[in-house]
Amino acid sequence: MNETHRRRNGCLIGCGVIALVLIAAVAVGGYLLYGSFKDGFIERKEYDAVKVGDAETDVRHRLPDGKSFLLTDLDKEAPAVPAGASCLHLGSLESGGSSDAMVAYRFCFRDGTLVEKNRYEVKG
């Protein structure tokens, strides 16, 4: 095998390794994005299934935890929080009324009970 063939083979191996690393990076990124999406978004039917007065543990068991980097600042455009309550904000899979709006859901709990739930729009 002459020197030209060795260089060509080395280049092909190097390119193959780089391609595998890029494919792995895209796969890991996609998996993390999917996980964040799954942890922060629900469908309308999931929102409708939860009723004010339900136990907080039951509601939180039924819904994702809302810990998604995709959902920063959802609480800024939400209605005022009921006194003494803590709230869980989730994104919606439905589209908003305008092209730059996203639908969000909020579930507020006090003393172990769901005391309020809201559907509102967040400007994109």
Rank of each mutant, 00 (worst) to 15 (best):
A80W: 08
D73Y: 13
E116A: 05
G112H: 00
G112A: 00
T72E: 14
T72R: 11
F107T: 01
G97T: 15
P79Y: 11
H89D: 03
S92H: 10
G91N: 06
K117H: 03
F109S: 01
L93H: 13
T113H: 11
C87Y: 02
A83E: 15
F109W: 00
A83H: 10
L71F: 02
A85T: 00
C87K: 00
D73T: 06
E116Q: 08
V103D: 09
A83D: 14
T72W: 06
E94H: 08
M102Y: 12
H89Q: 06
D100Y: 05
L70W: 01
R119M: 14
P82F: 00
S92C: 08
R110S: 11
G97Q: 15
K76W: 06
S98V: 10
V81H: 02
G84Y: 07
R106C: 05
V103Q: 05
L74R: 12
A80K: 15
E94F: 12
G84A: 06
L88H: 07
Y105A: 08
A80T: 10
A78K: 05
D100H: 12
G112L: 01
C108I: 04
L88G: 05
M102N: 13
F107I: 06
L70K: 07
L74T: 08
V81T: 10
L114E: 01
M102S: 14
T72G: 13
N118E: 09
G96R: 08
A101L: 05
C87R: 02
Y105E: 00
K117N: 06
L88A: 07
T113G: 07
G91Y: 03
E77N: 04
D75W: 08
L74C: 09
D111K: 04
S99W: 15
R119E: 14
C87P: 02
P82G: 00
H89K: 03
S98R: 14
K117F: 00
P79V: 05
S86H: 09
R110D: 06
